[in-house]
Design a protein around this nucleic acid. Sequence first.
DNA 1: TGCGCAGGTGTTTTT
DNA 2: CACCTGCGCA
Length: 752
Amino acid sequence: MQDYLVPLNEQQREAVLHTEGPLMIVAGAGSGKTKVLTTRIGHLINLGVDSFRILALTFTNKAAKEMKERIEHMLGNNEARNLYIGTFHSVFSRILRSDAEKLGYPSNFTIYDTDDAKSVLKSILKEKNLDEKHYKVAYIYGRISSAKNNLMTWREYQNDKGIQQEDARSNRPMIGEIFEAYSKRCFKNGAMDFDDLLVNMYILLSNFPESLAKYQHKFRYVMIDEYQDTNLAQYHIIKLLGALNENICVVGDDAQSIYSFRGATMENIFQFQKDYDDVRVIKLEQNYRSSKTILNAANQIIANNANQIPKELWTDKELGDKIKLVCTFTDNDEGKFVADTIIENKLRYHHPNKDFAILYRTNAQSRAFEESLRRLNIAYKIYGGLSFYHRKEIKDYVAYLRVLVNTQDEEAIKRIINYPARGIGNTSINKISLIAQEQNKSFWEIICQANLYGFKGTTLSAIENFVVMMRNFQGIIDKKNAYEVASELGKYSGMVQELHSDKTVEGLARYENIQELLNSIKEFTETPDEDGEVIERTLGSYLQQITLLTDADNEDEENSDVVKLMTIHASKGLEFPCVFVVGMEENIFPSSMSMYDREDLEEERRLFYVAVTRAKEKVWISYANNRYRFGSLVQNDPSRFLDELPTDLVDANLTSKPKQRTIFNKSSEQRNEIQQKKMPSKTIAVEHKASTNFVESDTSNLEVGNKVEHQRFGFGNVLTLEGPIANKIANIDFGPNGVKKIMLNYAKLRIV
DNA sequence: TGCGCAGGTGTTTTT
DNA sequence: CACCTGCGCA
């Protein structure tokens, strides 16, 4: 037996050795999925399969990179470099780049990220005179995106009875028309959005038999990671690619399907088994990551879902510590608790910072933890959130580069034509846009001949200067490398000067970001081509690459010793010795957007499952009674998921402050009482209308027995006062709205 | 055209 | 709270 097969268990080995024919690996959390995939690829190469003919698709660049590195390590030579391993989006963009002309796109097409796409939609709404408050950009983008993920064209969208009814019912009958305009505009701009990369890949394979044949022959073995996250477009592409050889191996875990909002459907898992006569299904059920306690708790959580493939995850690890459940008074206390606990565990058990992860449902929750960690001088890093390439100054700079590469890119021109300010304001921009529409020409063509379209005086010369400047840069694009072009661009456009003159802290940071951008361009242009698939080191290929990059893909600085903060979504695929799952409250987790639908709720539960199964040794779960949201204090019930935790695996007595209660201290009867009391506050609270003479009173001398008015809760009686003078808390009986704890420092009260 | 200010509005999750 | 938009003024 080969060395690399030895460390595998029976099922893992079986998966590696099953190289021919369709294979589905159902891989539970922590069951060695990546190990199997990489060993399998290494094994194929070892069997003599040409490494150029293996394709592996992942969802993140990080996963792709890790796979590549591990295979390289296993093989000990350069063969791994020839493998086609990448994200769906990056691999398809590479393929589309070489075949773009077939679809009528320029080969240096621009990739629009979500921001770009939304700004195109905004322009269209303006042109069509639609009310942006009713036709919300995010909503429209979502409609269009999910249509595309289901391989639906704008024409099909307009002709689909069901969809038209839906849009009519929501009183947005124009979406089909917007979809059409949006598609045409992107095409005219020589641009594809994220979804187009999938749609166009599908079109290429289904409409051009010679392309289909080419890639079917090229990719003799196809592997798909995180198969549960694929959508319909991806499903069809995979099916087409694999139809000739049927050597398709998909790896997934239905219990970790958490991207349905992006069109992912578990149906693909079931369909895969129906599509081929001889599908082999292998389940990996031994977990190598978590303690028994953690794994058992996770199993119990997921058992509450009706919709799942039956499997039993087990481990031979120790029982380990109980899960700790903690309730704090406010979100800031929650932050303090986490930071304190990290210090304590560092001291007592010698955990380094990097052993800890703080996982939350939404990015907005990170702030309380940032503050508390900073206060205790604990090094941390936030993953996700605003990625480097989404910062304004970077997008501005990149927009210049985009225009140089593709003058059709109207969005990019609009972004920079007046940045730095050079006297071409919104009025002129809109005018140019309109003329371009009417003349059926590109924005760029119009400004090249601005004198023909009624522009005069200072505006005309400003436009002409801009065109001349951009033409000059285009002139040097072939003579100098991408880095030189980019740095001269910064100098002569006035951008660098503009940023340099801003001496505020933020301004300085922006300036540094630009330097970092230039460095990354330099690095890209100077990296020699790898053997095999030649990646052009041009500005165009650089731009395509960065749009598909996310924060998670940045150099991970594996060794940097920092506490990691991220959303649970971003944590998928990762593991940490110690995990804090925070903000376990109704409306947050489960999200208020996903509470009223069984499917949505089950996805939230899978998300909770993902969070808990990230941990190897220790898990803390916390929630706060009071939390700032939208600037005001709100109260949420403890998450319903907490009730699903097995009590014998949880230590719920731990509290960060003396006065907390935990739901486990209450009898079920009391628990019902709490719920009943709290329920109405959600509905009635908004119904109270503050009196017209509502003026915030000075509450520093508030006394028990005072009558007060609260803007949302209405009129109430002060029952008790507690806490230090600097942070007094009043218990106030708001009658039908129940008794509330009100922090006088924050709440606005009128003493009646 | 550009700047400052008031007012309104919104937060799931991401390639 | 924090961002964005629209409006009025120089």
